[in-house]
Design a protein around this nucleic acid. Structure first.
Lengths: 244, 244
DNA sequence: TCTGCGATTTGACCGGCATCAAGGACGCTC
DNA sequence: GAGCGTCCTTGATGCCGGTCAAATCGCAGA
């Protein structure tokens, strides 16, 4: 990962949490900015009915804590044992005065500026389960993947249920679709918390178009066949969303 | 509606569009701020597969144009014949200098600050069709409703297909659920572009809990029965989300 | 190593909603 | 008011994925 946005000298607190323990909860005081040092953080909303909606995951280097990524709107919990550092309110004020340009970058990141949030909404509204999971695994690969001999080795820090609550499906379906992708030799499961992307182009195609094109390049828009009224469910295409 | 955020003296351009014509498209130059004068604006993403995802609607008085509510991320199209006014980049700079406090309010609103966007995500991930529609109609009532003799008269400026693309369902299902709510005498359809909320408490209950409680108050969390593993689908509760 | 518990996988079933297909209502223009 | 295109409603059908259930896996602690 690249040089982190916040350095040790900026930070005023380090926190560790085991899985499922909160770093902050909805309604906690706001204004501080957090940076993931290790592990994986879930930003989520609980409903009183007991359901959970995971709005996003934060990985090492990611910054969160403001707006829709802060305690005014969501809970932040460890998806696995994690460490997080904090830049408090006063430290942020100090940085705004001494280094306004860098401070604005930090603030933008803490609002979730790095991620294209609307893509997630598009995905969970329309795509079938297989495509949702392909999209998630592909983006995880881009974010966390380690290239090893032409294949991509990826950590999977969160549970199946976390993935399910992020994609709007059940953990059983996540498990089934995972198995399906393994049987198709698109991915390989290495224990529960690691996988390998064996055919990245196919996974990408599945994520973007919902179809199993075997070509190495993303199909061009004009090559996609769809009816005038509505595309077949499985040819749904996210290329526009991911290009934006 | 309350006094609009932007006054005529702030604005530098007025635009009118018939239904389905764009005010701006994804990739257009950004930096300007728009205010709805009349009608209804759809903020949406198109996919190359031909599907559309409506991320939000803007009504008279709403301000948009930045971040996920701007041309860097979405298209803005008229959902019905609409008028929009614009505060250009230069005008915004001027306001930032002369009235920084008001300018920051305007900027926050243009990012979509007014609406709790995460509630929409929770809704489209989990809720069944009936609850999605109840939620949408209830929020429309709160936003646009005119109280008339104890009932709420509400404009419905957009087509069924627009609602469907906002809630992640088909327009046929929107139509069916609408009919069902009418048959239950919860709403009354007055032509295609207007409806009346006859039993607001029931509609609200349906929107929040997914169940047809007939009580006038929102059921308290502890009164909701759900299994330890997972609530029954129809008792899904959004109260936490809407409280936030 | 054994034991126990939570996480995951897998199977069987079925219900809600997408899909396909008419038919009807509404709002234009002429 | 006739004609026409668009939008909406309604019906029939099928399948994806949610639900319930049980077996297996994996890890931590004794």
């Amino acid at each position: 990962m690249a040089k982190p946005l916040l350095q040790t000298s900026d930070l005023d607190l380090f926190m560790s949490r085991p899985r499922n323990r909160p770093f902050f909860s909805e309604g906690d005081p706001s204004g501080a900015i957090y940076q993931v040092e290790s592990g994986c953080i879930r930003l989520q909303k609980m409903t009183e009915g007991g359901r959970r909606c995971v709005l996003s995951f934060c990985y090492p280097g990611d910054v969160f804590g403001l707006g829709t990524h802060g305690p005014e709107q969501v809970d932040a919990e460890a998806a696995c044992a994690s460490r997080v550092s904090r830049l408090g309110h006063l430290g942020l004020q100090r940085m705004l005065q001494s280094e306004p340009t860098r401070a604005m970058k930090v603030i933008d990141a803490a609002y979730g500026g790095q991620e294209p949030g609307s893509e997630h909404v598009v995905m969970i509204s329309f795509a079938p389960a297989e495509q949702k999971l392909a999209w998630f695994l592909a983006s995880l690969g881009q974010r966390l993947g380690q290239s090893v001999g032409g294949e991509l080795l990826v950590d999977l820090p969160m549970m199946r249920a976390d993935i399910a609550d992020h994609l709007g499906m059940t953990f059983e379906t996540v498990s089934r679709e995972m198995t399906k992708l393994r049987d198709l030799k698109i991915i390989d499961l290495l224990g529960l918390r690691k996988f390998k992307i064996q055919r990245a182009a196919v996974l990408q195609s599945l994520a973007l178009t919902g179809s199993l094109a075997t070509s190495r390049h993303v199909p061009s828009p004009s090559s996609l066949a769809f009816s005038p009224r509505m595309p077949a469910r499985r040819t749904f295409d996210l290329a526009a969303a991911s290009a934006g």
